[in-house]
Simulated assay, not measured.
Amino acid sequence: MAESTVRIFDIMACNVYWDFDGSPLPREQHKFLVSFYPTKGAPTPELIDSIVAYGPDGYRVEFANQRFTPDNKNGYIYDRTLDYYWYMVNLATGFLPEGEYTIEVTGKDGTVDRRSRMQRQESTDALVPAYREHRQQILDSFAPSGRQRLPEGTALTDLVCSWRTLKELAGRDAYYIYRLAEGGSAREFDTQNLTWWDNIFFQKLRGDATAGLNRDSVTVAAELKPDTTYAYFVEITDSNVQSETNICIFQPHQVFTTP
């Protein structure tokens, strides 16, 4: 198969509990995501004709072949660290019914690739109530947070960020994904331009079977800029494999400023 042929790496079709501060959107949502192997010779979006997700009872939604933004919530994101594209669409229409979901990708060369997964409700029923019950304890535990300015002399490398987990507070196993970007709010947070993120999916692929499991801190493997405001958020999931994920909990962004 030519390197310029679009090939699916993995997919997500899962529930989302949307807990971003100040968002007018409902908490119960769902999303679809499809990640691709790198394509050589042309950016992946130039090779795609259409992407469509299908589900039970005639469910159908189209991915847009455009740059994903906080406003459109539908399009592609480029990960410059691994030189690959992934597409995502967030839908504020409640949780998904259980059942099989398929994402089908058609390339401009006529090739078709598809991947399916089964969505289950059990993890949502376990993790979302536990998160709601302990939400304030979790939010109070984030460090750094509170829009604070870090103390003078704080190193701009190897910054440690920490939080309490559902394992500690509720006895629930879960996986944690950390994302950091410049900006002082969820609105300013640019998914297309992350300063650093804790890619547990890639870590799992590289052989760390428990990557992200009950993780209560990260050490940021990037040098931060001085006198700059950053925001980060920690996502809670039930798996470190995209196609095995049934629920993602998007926690509120935490903000701090470097000295």
Rank of each mutant, 00 (worst) to 15 (best):
R172L: 13
R80V: 10
V16D: 02
L91F: 01
N65R: 13
P259R: 10
L180D: 01
F95V: 05
E104F: 05
V160S: 04
M12S: 15
D208H: 14
T191K: 13
R120T: 06
D173F: 05
V160F: 09
F20P: 11
P26W: 00
I236P: 08
S23N: 04
F63K: 11
R135D: 04
R114A: 11
V61C: 13
D227T: 10
D83C: 12
L82R: 15
S50G: 11
R120E: 04
Y232R: 05
D113I: 05
P38Y: 02
Y85K: 09
L166K: 10
D21H: 13
T257L: 09
A181C: 06
I48F: 08
M12L: 15
D198P: 10
I138N: 11
A130W: 03
E244G: 14
R132M: 14
L213I: 01
K204G: 06
K167R: 15
E133K: 15
A186K: 14
T93I: 13
E244Y: 11
T81P: 04
N65C: 06
W18C: 05
I77V: 05
T191F: 14
S243Y: 05
M1K: 14
Q254E: 07
I249W: 02
I51R: 06
D173T: 00
Y232M: 02
G55S: 00
D19A: 11
Y78V: 02
W18P: 10
E3Q: 14
R135W: 00
I51C: 10
N199G: 10
N90A: 12
L96G: 04
T154V: 09
L169T: 00
A126N: 10
R80E: 07
I200W: 07
E100D: 11
R114F: 08
L47E: 02
E223Y: 01
Y87N: 04
P252E: 01
T39W: 01
I48V: 09
D21W: 06
D71W: 13
P24L: 06
D10A: 10
R172M: 15
P70Q: 01
G107T: 03
Y230A: 06
I177P: 12
A170V: 00
F36A: 05
A155C: 09
I8M: 03
L159E: 01
D83R: 14
D208Q: 15
I103D: 03
D227R: 14
T165F: 03
K167V: 00
G207H: 06
Q66H: 13
S35F: 04
N65A: 08
T124C: 07
S185N: 08
L82S: 15
R80H: 11
P38S: 03
M12T: 13
L180T: 08
A186M: 11
D109A: 05
Q203R: 15
S116I: 01
D140K: 13
N90K: 14
I177F: 09
S23M: 04
L224Q: 08
A186P: 12
F95E: 02
N15K: 05
V61K: 15
Q119D: 13
Y78D: 00
G146S: 01
V218F: 04
R60W: 06
S243M: 08
L139M: 11
G99E: 04
P226M: 03
F36I: 08
V128W: 04
T5Q: 10
G184C: 06
R215Y: 01
L25N: 10
L213W: 09
L150H: 02
Y87L: 10
F63M: 15
T195V: 07
A92S: 12
R120K: 14
D216N: 12
